[in-house]
């Protein structure tokens, strides 16, 4: 299986700029969609950030976005321990973006329809991973247990049930991510490749305008 290399940044400032831009984009759309719990463009942007610019952009974007949104949240600040689970959960999108790029998961599909569906499915399964991790984390704080094993088991069962009860927020999350990944992601990736921000040269894919100083 041939691996696709990660892009190289021409300079540090372009990397910082891209991290800041994605973080701002995530936060703005999160606040915009506050009235629709678990419907987020942010997940797709995590994927795009990592797919196009690598882990060194995706992971900081997750840390900055999630920490800010968990603390300054119109629905109430998340408890400190839950922020850790949220960051780990959001890293599922970074992981899927990284693996999709590295192992050319999307490019293997022959038709455009299959590519769109496969990106949608990547979003759906990443959302499922996020939901399992964060609901398990919530369960840890909500259930008791006589021993460690029963505590962990109780938290897992609690998380699996509350994921879709009383409101099917887990399914809303997975369905919306499927929709956004299959529409927003392919078009954004196409736009990015045409923007001139990413150029292909002897070093491979390079981020930044030609003529910038290389660091």
């Amino acid at each position: 299986m041939s691996a696709r290399p990660s892009p190289i940044f021409r300079n540090v400032s372009s990397k910082v700029g891209i991290i800041a831009a994605f973080t701002a984009l995530n936060l703005a759309t999160d606040y915009m969609l506050t009235g629709l719990p678990n419907v987020k463009f942010m997940d797709a942007f995590y994927f795009i950030a990592t797919f196009e610019f690598g882990l060194s952009v995706g992971l900081p974007v997750v840390c900055f976005t999630r920490t800010a949104y968990a603390i300054v949240n119109p629905l109430g600040a998340a408890p400190g321990f839950l922020i850790v689970f949220l960051v780990v959960g959001d890293s599922m999108y970074v992981l899927s973006g990284y693996l999709s790029r590295r192992f050319r998961l999307v490019e293997k599909e022959s038709s455009a329809g299959d590519r769109v569906l496969s990106i949608g499915l990547i979003g759906l399964f990443s959302a499922l991973g996020f939901d399992l991790i964060t609901n398990f984390g919530t369960g840890l704080s909500m259930v008791g247990g006589s021993g460690l094993q029963s505590h962990l088991w109780g938290a897992l069962v609690f998380g699996l049930i509350t994921m879709n009860f009383p409101l099917p927020l887990g399914i809303v999350h997975e369905a919306s991510d499927f929709l956004f990944f299959s529409t927003l992601v392919p078009s954004s990736l196409a736009l990015l490749s045409r923007s001139g921000l990413i150029t292909t040269g002897p070093l491979g894919r390079v981020i930044g305008k030609r003529g910038d100083n290389q660091n």
Partner: peptide
């Protein structure tokens, strides 16, 4: 193709199972 169809079916089945679990056990446990 099969590489898309199989994960699609798995995804639908998983969501159905999770929803079913929540609908059945949710009211009883919570």
């Amino acid at each position: 193709n099969c590489r898309i169809f199989a994960p699609m079916m798995i995804a639908i089945a998983l969501l159905g199972v999770f929803w079913g679990l929540a609908e059945y056990f949710g009211p009883r446990l919570l």
